[in-house]
Design a protein around this nucleic acid. Structure first.
Length: 132
RNA sequence: GCGGAGGGCCGGAUGGCCGCGGCCCCUGACGGGGGUCGAGGAAAGUCCGGACUCCACAAGGCGACGGUGCCGGGUAACGCCCGGCCGGGGCAACCCGAGGGAAAGCGCCACAGAAAACAGACCGCCCCGGAGCCCAUCCGGGGUGAGGGUGAAACGGUGGGGUAAGAGCCCACCGCGGGCCUGGCAACAGGUCCGGCACGGCAAGCCCCACCGGGAGCAAUGCCGAAUAGGGACCGCAUCAUGGCCCGCCUUGGCCGCGCGGUCCGGGUUGGCAGCUCGAGGUGUUCUGGCAACAGGACAUCCAGAAGAAUGGCCAUCCAUCCCGGGAAUUCCCGGGAGGACAGAAUCCGGCUUACAGGCCCUCCGCGCAA
RNA sequence: GCGGGUGUAGCUCAGGGGUAGAGCGCAACCUUGCCAAGGUUGAUGUCGUGAGUUCGAAUCUCAUCACCCGCU
């Protein structure tokens, strides 16, 4: 369990080797393709993942927070927390050449403690990658 | 001290690590580094008013449709703001009011009641004549609208005189209407004289009067690139009926379509750039005019521009606030815990409305106490 | 950004100033050996919320909330 130790000095950690860059998913079609591929729900979010098989190696990630989350302020807050946790986890745990979509859930995405949110994403990624 | 009225302001602070968007500079090809700026009083609802852009462009009249509605002022404009008037509420400070016209017309006023709008008269009251010995009662004729009960509202109200009984029939006051005078720019107020009741309510029912309004909206609109043959633009010639030109009709112009020829662009879809942030600008101090809204001037200072959409994530301490335990009869101290309102720019301004934990300041009113 | 519509009984909807209604559903009873159907009777409402106009508002006016639908 490296999570507590990592959290202790996580803010200042300098990466040894250059981690793969994150790109933002923007086109509606990419979201629809990811939704048809693998998905895994957790307490605070739904994670969708898809291997692109187009030869490129970038990790792309998109975020969805619908009106069910609440008004504009809570939607923005949910999306920013998802973005923060993705930026911290995906470069190390994500697979190159995959697309990921993180979907916020009402209440939990905003109110869940940050460390729990983070372990939710790690556990979801492990399950998604383990699937055939 | 208690209770109340009006107005204004703030709406967490500091630090650390990791990040985001615009602009500038340096280094330089993917990139990296530095500097600087980066949400609100409501950014919200989209309820009004504008700026700006386009709609093939205008001028005038009539009519629809929509809006506004005491008076004066402010403003680019407004349905906003300021001052005043009138009506209503409150002991008061003060608050509330879609507040033009009901003798231009139409309509409605359920139930109850004799009668609901313009006159009439159900129970009554009174007089005369007759029937009846008289009374009671009945019949006929006439006067009356005082009394009764209904209703939200009943044909001016109260008091007195008067009368057969009554009645603005007469008188006083109030109310209503009209004339004149005074004050005021005006709404209106005050005074005086006359009339002698003749005009119930509803116009947020239709309506009448006055004033205002062309339509759409930055996803407007302009430009560039890729791509593709069904579309479109322009010019010239021809030209008849008719249709259309962002509510209808009319008048005066103007334009478009149908056919032939020529030239040019290139639909859907998708991407980029401009519009795009400096404007009736904001904030602070101050001067002049004004009761004020506001106007004019001086100085200083500030300026978010994204586009799956930045302005953040996490942590610590402090500050409000609350809870628990302990010491002191509350306030005070110590320890622990909880914990931060409503809410996120999307072309830009001026308003209105709505949401909002907690806190601060100023002015005023009533009551009580002390001096 | 612009525009439109709806809100009434558990459900679907009428009613457009004068006592809130219909159908389905629900409950009780009758009928039947039992059930269904049928019949009789009954209960049920802050008329989304708050102000205003009016003697009187589900209805008219204003504000507000929620939901739905168009156009670009």
């Amino acid at each position: 369990m490296t999570v507590p130790a990592e959290a202790a000095h996580a803010p200042g950690c300098a990466p040894e080797e250059p981690l793969p860059r994150l790109e933002t998913l923007k086109a509606r079609a990419d979201f629809l393709r990811a939704a048809r591929a693998r998905r895994q729900g957790t307490v605070a979010m739904m994670v969708q993942a898809r291997r692109r098989d187009d030869g490129t190696s970038a990790i792309r990630v998109g975020f969805t927070c619908s009106k069910k989350l609440g008004n504009a302020v809570t939607r923005n807050r949910a999306k920013r927390r998802l973005r923060a946790v993705a930026r911290e986890v995906l470069p190390k745990r994500g697979h190159p050449g995959w697309d990921y979509v993180l979907i916020g859930r009402p209440g939990e995405t905003v109110s869940r403690p940050y460390q729990a949110l983070k372990s939710d994403l790690i556990r979801a990624l492990d399950k998604l990658h383990a699937k055939p």
